[in-house]
Simulated assay, not measured.
Amino acid sequence: MAETPRARIAVLLSGTGTTMSALLFQSRLPQCPYEIVAVGSNDPTAFGLKVAAAEGIATFAHPHSGMAREDHEALMQASLHEHAPDYVALCGYMRILTPGFVDQWAGRMVNTHPSLLPKYKGLDTHQRAIDAGDSHGGCSVHIVTGELDDGPVLGQLAVPILPGEDEASLRRRVQMAEYQLYPHCLEELVSRPYRADWLLERVRAIALALPEAEERESHGAPAFHTGGKSGKFFAHFSETHHGSEHIAVLVKVSGQDELATLVEQFPKTWFKPAYYGASGWAGLILNRADTDWEHVAEWMHRSWAGVAPKRLAGLQRAAEQF
């Protein structure tokens, strides 16, 4: 199988860079699936910029004082794109981001928060946990959305609140947990596009959302069928099948001419699978950082429609008109 490329991470920070350093030093370990390619800040004096520069990482800074939020974000966005990151990690970046900024990194911007979300969004998380009589504080790593401290949680670590503990003590111990959790969750996130188990779950969700679709094993691998005794297969999940380097979903095409055209014009997306290719199946490659899942869904729907009974295909077309 081809070597998996390391994901490019840009970091935004406003302070000392301790959380960034946790990500950075993890990236220097063997087999870490990501690298830090740039560190940016809204404060040119942020100590974290000096730490990054000493480690040979590109840095940039744009002070926000006196600027409209959108204008400042446009500067930060332009600098980020200069370094072509795959993901953005917030590490104590003390700016509330607009939905317009976040949307450009949908699913690819992460943050850490010092509470067990959804508890205690916002500030003063440790004192709020103590005042509530909670047995544990903790931290969460989550995907950033347009809502403050919202978005899917990637991981959490609970930290016991000791008898008589004050806010400062709890904060220090939660920070230690964050330094362990954040690199782990970032590794897991950037590895997803290349993991067969995660890719299969995405394919499975798309397939089983189609009318009367069923999952059945075919030649020892997961596959999807239109259902019933007379049903037919419309997709096969292929994990490095017959020595291929690809993890893919195999879908039906109109014939050898279309298969050859797809492979020739889009060699990074399509391939002719061994065994299945001769019978009109095309391999849609999934283990890529830039997989377009809407495109995958469209082809799986087309493949389903090509073998579904007329009764089902007609009902689906009628439903799509509303």
Rank of each mutant, 00 (worst) to 15 (best):
L200V: 07
W299A: 14
Y34I: 09
S41N: 02
G137P: 07
V102A: 05
R311S: 04
T145W: 01
F47R: 11
L49G: 03
Y87E: 00
A209I: 01
S135H: 06
R108A: 13
L286F: 00
M76V: 09
G40N: 06
G15S: 10
Q156C: 07
Q156K: 09
G17F: 00
M20S: 08
G66H: 07
L259D: 08
V159L: 01
R302F: 00
W105P: 14
A289I: 05
F322V: 06
R28E: 00
H72T: 12
G100E: 00
G155W: 08
I130W: 09
F224V: 09
A22F: 00
L123P: 10
R302N: 09
C139R: 14
A297W: 06
T240M: 06
R108C: 14
F47I: 09
S303G: 07
V190C: 12
L262G: 07
P152G: 02
A58H: 11
G122I: 10
S115A: 15
H126W: 01
H242N: 07
P309A: 02
Q104L: 01
S27H: 03
R173D: 04
D166A: 11
V307M: 07
R28Q: 03
E165K: 09
A10N: 15
L24T: 06
E214L: 05
V88Q: 11
E73T: 00
C139V: 14
F271D: 06
R108E: 12
V263A: 11
L80N: 12
M76A: 04
P5Q: 02
E258I: 11
Q156D: 01
S169I: 08
A313E: 12
L181K: 08
V253R: 14
A54P: 06
K272N: 01
V153F: 00
G255K: 07
E167A: 15
G133T: 09
A58F: 02
